[in-house]
Structures are given as C-alpha cells and as structure tokens.
Nucleic acid binder design. Structure first.
Length: 183
DNA sequence: TAAAGGATAATA
DNA sequence: ATTATCCTTTAT
C-alpha cells in the first residue's frame, strides 16, 4: 500500500483537505488491520481561524497542531468522544484537517459517520496524539484504483462560536456518498 | 432539545 | 482550586 508522503501534507490546508477525500485511513494494531475510506473532512486554517484550536495560541494541547505536517492530532471532545486531525502546512502554522467520516473498507464494525464514531470504530484515542502518519501503525494511503470524485463544499459543523469563520465553506465531502455524517 | 462526560484553558 | 467551554452522540 502506497503511503502518502510528507510533502502531501506540507501544502495549503484547503487543498490537502479536498485531496484527502477518497484516500484510505489505515490503522495496524497488534493483530488487526482496520481501513476506512475518507469521505468527509473539515479544514482548520491556523491561528487566525477562530474555529481552530490553534487560535488559542501554542498550548500543551495545541502544540501538535503547530508541529510539522503529517502527524495526528487527537483530542477528547465533550468528555466522551475522540476526534482525529491531520496536521498540515509547515511547522508553526497550526493548521490541520479534521477527519469527519469514513466508509468501512476493512474490519470496521458499527457506524463510522461523524468524527467521534469514526474514532470509536477505528479504536483511535489520545494515545495516538502526535503519532507520525508515515509510521507503520497509522497512515493514510493512496487507494489501489482511483475513483472520480465530486467534492461538495459546506460550512463546518459545531463552530457557531467562530463568528464569520463559521460561515466559510471549509467542510468537504464526497458527493452522494452514503457515509457522510450530515449531507 | 438536552443530558452525558472529562480534559483544557482561563481566572484566581 | 474553580469554572466555563467544547471541531459530539444518543436518547427523549
């Protein structure tokens, strides 16, 4: 399986977010391999983006976002769900892409639509925070057969507090894919 | 529509 | 040390 290389992530977050659609999220644990096709994402642009965690500046929690591209940023939200992001752009920019839904490809029981459910199905938790996405345990790969994808652009979900940033079309998903969390 | 739930960041 | 807040989900 062909891992996406570091330079893939070291680009404009809006581009990376859209190009992540259709790619395969792979997690190799001790004995099992889980694979999901990414069908829905959101772009978080950096310190100036009021919806992004990095807008709080560099903290213990956000330091991963400010780190180099191609690493996982995983956090606990609302005390019960994990969310996984992919760090983008060069170190210091604080940008990332939130993975919101995948389509089950291999060993993914239960629902995978929604950032919390996606992590539950993949068994992703904070132990993977800061994990390298070019590692053998967790990575994103190019699918064997490329598919033609139509990208739908919508406002991000759950960021009403971010004023005008809440209206920007930074949520992307594969048109007509049944695993999108909120079409 | 609201409750659940715990870490986080700001305030003190 | 205390408190408000949160990139959600599920159930009423």
């Amino acid at each position: 399986m062909q891992k996406l290389p570091r330079p893939f992530y070291d680009r404009d977050t809006v581009i990376v977010a859209q190009e992540l659609l259709g790619k395969l999220l792979v997690l190799q644990s001790a004995k099992i391999e889980r694979i999901g096709k990414i069908v829905e994402v959101e772009a978080y642009l950096g310190e100036h983006d009021l919806a992004a965690h990095s807008s709080k500046g560099r903290t213990e929690r956000t330091k991963i976002m400010f780190g180099p591209p191609g690493f996982a940023y995983v956090y606990l939200i609302y005390g019960m769900h994990h969310c996984m992001n992919v760090v983008t752009e060069r170190e210091g920019n604080g940008a990332a892409v939130l993975l919101r839904a995948v389509e089950p490809v291999k060993n993914l029981p239960g629902k995978t639509s929604g950032p919390g459910l996606l992590c539950r199905a993949m068994e992703i938790d904070r132990r993977l925070n800061g994990h390298d996405l070019l590692s053998d345990e967790l990575f994103i790969a190019e699918p064997e057969v490329a598919e033609r994808i139509s990208v739908v652009k919508r406002p991000r979900i759950g960021v009403d507090y971010a004023q005008h940033w809440a209206k920007r079309l930074l949520r992307f998903y594969i048109k007509d894919n049944p695993f999108v969390s909120r079409p």
